[in-house]
Design a binder for these strands. Sequence first.
DNA 1: AGTAAACAGACAAACCCTTG
DNA 2: CAAGGGTTTGTCTGTTTACT
Length: 421
Amino acid sequence: MKDNMTPLTDVLDFIVDNRGKTVPTSDSGIPLIATNCIKHSSIYPTFDNVRYVNDETMKTWFRAHPKPNDIIFVNKGTPGRVCLVPDAVGFCFAQDMMGFRCDPKKIDYQYLFAVLRSNFIQQKIENFHVGLVIPHFKKGDLGHIKIPRLSSRQLELAVGKLYIKLSKKIELNNQINVELEAMAKTLYDYWFVQFDFPDANSKPYKSSGGKMVYNEVLKRDIPEGWENGSLDDIGQVVGGSTPSTSERNNFADIATPWITPNDLSKNQGNKFISRGAQDVTADGIKSASLKTYPTGTVLLSSRAPIGYMAIAQNPLTTNQGFKSFIPNKGYSTEFVYYSVRNSLKTIEQYSSGSTFKEISGSVLKTVKTILPESKIVDDYTATVADTFARQNNLELENQQLSSLRDWLLPMLMNGQVTVSQ
DNA sequence: AGTAAACAGACAAACCCTTG
DNA sequence: CAAGGGTTTGTCTGTTTACT
């Protein structure tokens, strides 16, 4: 790395620091973010499990508040995670993190932000962890974090801006995906919940007076010709398993993809999955009598967090935390996906267990659902197939963008690659 | 034998206390 | 009172045990 380094503390103007004391919260008011809101999947803090403080607390309790373009630095739990403070701040923060305010005469916040997120600095930070119980980064060690400097401030700024631009493109793709998802879901609801699928004259069926028949099992009117059924009717329900983890031969980096709920929680937001953290070998498959599921299988986590869903992008298998639907009963992946999603509330209600909730395969199979005429299902599939393909492409593009970003950053930092300004 | 539930450990986050 | 540390709480998940 560069020989030209500046201690982190030398480029900062101020540090927002509210560590060590507990904020009184209230039911509403100004959002109070905690360390779980600082994630590298987002440039800005997210508002997960956010709590609130009232005006009075906001004004009097804190030592300081973050300002736009401050860099929030987590120093407890998983020290080193950083996010930027957006232009409209809209939140305050308390313990276990600090806010770095850059001295604009000395460094651009964009560059410092990119550097702090680099593996190079993340590893340095890890080396300073203290605490026997909880990893902890001491404020006093900030001066030991050395920031590599480039030949000019202009170059640094360009690097920082490039990093942020790539990150923003990734987040934009994610937003597009959220909207595509809403569209496909809305269409499902419109066709199969409200029954306003296009009739023979391309008019919405129910609203245009399409014939409805009372169904005893579902206890409501459904379009004539449709039937009641259960989730067992729309796909083959299969459960995964875990080979003995003490037997090293059961696992490998590249073999048959094997998905655990943990892979989906890390993958959050992604609709398609190709592989998890570990693959299982032929030995592992044999010892746990695992079955491989085909592309297009709909995965549903069935333990602890019930309801993580994903679609197999290639043949794979899962651990025991999943029940999956192989779409081999005449209903498409697209239809199965939303039928299951639409049943999640019931599935959660049917789950049992004292330590944590779990839905068993046999109970899952009994969850009632509607079985439309196959032509309507086919039409739906044809309509949303393109949306699914676009979502998949955007997810793949994001994987490429983030690996590009993470590959490029160290090259830029050590001068192997340069940016035209 | 295969599936479901319980157990227990790991981990992370939120919170609180002590010390200089 | 700031800063550094631990305690508590809660969640997640692989493994074991129990039950068809």
